[in-house]
């Protein structure tokens, strides 16, 4: 078994234009920076991206938007991105807005092999339009389908040569469920270690879900809202 690839270029080399990608991260926290740069460099386009946010104008998925590489964006919150707004309002970009918990749970359903889940969020709103409703114990729920994605791309703090992953802080967010949901899952990590070095009790994503892993060349880890207090 050899899951370790040389770097981002090799990890993404067979992603075709038109593919559906899941990209981990919340805002810019925990995004797979190296893979995004490689996708931008290679110019793969016509992509459907499932990600909580769409980056900012000059970082994260925002870079893919600048290159008109994204055909459709499935996200829960897309503020803080002027180019995104422009493409959406002009009709160049198709957008499906999904409640954040629904987004996470539709990823989770895919990783757990469940075709659909019943969720409360969005009942009585335009999110419910066209969806099947089932009543359980007197309450209405929306049937939400598991996501179907060709590739999941996540960034972890530590990973080993078996593909086992550990995340740090709130950089975990959507990445474990997305890693579990991809037909092919690519993990880039800050620290790649030999199998056996990670505590098996501490692993968040078992390597069975991860197909390719590499240590990212460089992490900018940009902060979106730097808020501090004085000492």
């Amino acid at each position: 078994m050899n899951k370790v690839v040389a770097g981002a270029d090799e990890a993404i080399k067979d992603i075709p234009s038109g593919a559906t990608l899941m990209l981990g991260g919340f805002g810019l926290c925990g995004i797979p920076e190296n893979c995004i740069h490689a996708i931008v460099k290679k110019g793969i386009n016509n992509l459907t991206c499932i990600s909580n946010n769409a980056g900012v104008d000059d970082f994260g998925i925002g870079l893919m938007l600048q290159g008109r590489q994204v055909k459709k964006m499935i996200a829960s919150y897309v503020g803080e991105n002027a180019e995104f707004e422009r493409q959406m309002l002009s009709g160049e970009l198709e957008v499906e807005l999904v409640p954040q918990g629904t987004l996470a749970t539709r990823c989770m359903a895919a990783g757990y092999g469940m075709p659909a889940v019943y969720l409360l969020a969005g009942i009585g709103t335009e999110v419910a339009e066209g969806k099947e409703i089932r009543n359980f114990n007197g309450k209405d729920y929306l049937m939400e389908l598991a996501f179907d994605s060709d590739f999941a791309i996540v960034k972890a703090w530590k990973g080993d040569t078996q593909g086992n992953l550990i995340f740090k802080g709130t950089a975990r967010n959507f990445s474990p469920m997305m890693a579990m949901a991809g037909k092919i899952t690519i993990a880039e990590v800050e620290h790649l270690v030999p199998a056996g070095e990670l505590d098996p009790n501490a692993i968040h994503v078992p390597g069975i879900y991860v197909h390719r892993i590499f240590q990212g060349d460089k992490y900018e880890k940009r902060i979106e809202q730097r808020t501090v207090r004085k000492k």
Binding site: T170, T227, V228, R229
Partner: peptide, 17 residues
Amino acid sequence: PFEGDEDADLINAGKQT
């Protein structure tokens, strides 16, 4: 956090450190 202690991996839902 105190100035200088910000951690990019530690934010709230408003994306604040």
